[in-house]
């Protein structure tokens, strides 16, 4: 389940009550015309990042993003995760190749000898 940080402390409880109240406010707002909920925002993220959102949806997406701190943090963390994945894998590509099991090299060369053409 979702971590509600510090919910044991009075300050934490105030924060959680405030967040709950703001969710309520956003929910009321989200029912106005041209507004979307977080769950709809979620469905737009992929196309948004690919620049594939039709302009009407793009406007709704941008407006929701301005209004909703939770979706802002979510999107930031989502994009950061993608960027981290890319950077870490690129790093691996640049690293000195690790040693290869000699029997793999032997198997590859033997397969070549016998004209095996891959699976």
């Amino acid at each position: 389940m979702v971590r509600q940080r510090d919910s044991g402390t009075p300050a934490g409880q105030v924060v959680n009550i405030y967040r709950k109240l703001m969710r309520r406010v956003r929910w009321v707002l989200s029912r106005a015309p041209h507004m979307i909920r977080c769950s709809e925002f979620e469905d737009f993220i992929l196309d948004y990042l690919d620049d594939d959102l039709p302009s009407a949806e793009q406007r709704k997406f941008d407006f929701h993003l301005r209004l909703c701190p939770e979706c802002r943090i979510y999107l930031d963390a989502y994009q950061t995760s993608v960027a981290l994945g890319r950077a870490v894998c690129d790093e691996l590509d640049d690293a000195i190749p690790e040693s290869v099991p000699e029997d793999l090299v032997a198997a590859v060369l033997a397969a070549r000898e016998f004209g095996y053409e891959g699976g």
Partner: peptide
């Protein structure tokens, strides 16, 4: 991701996300 019954996001992260 988790949403409440009204489709509002319950985001566990609260602070600033550090730069990549």
């Amino acid at each position: 991701p988790v949403f409440d019954g009204n489709g509002c996001r319950l985001e566990p992260l609260q602070g600033r996300i550090l730069p990549v």
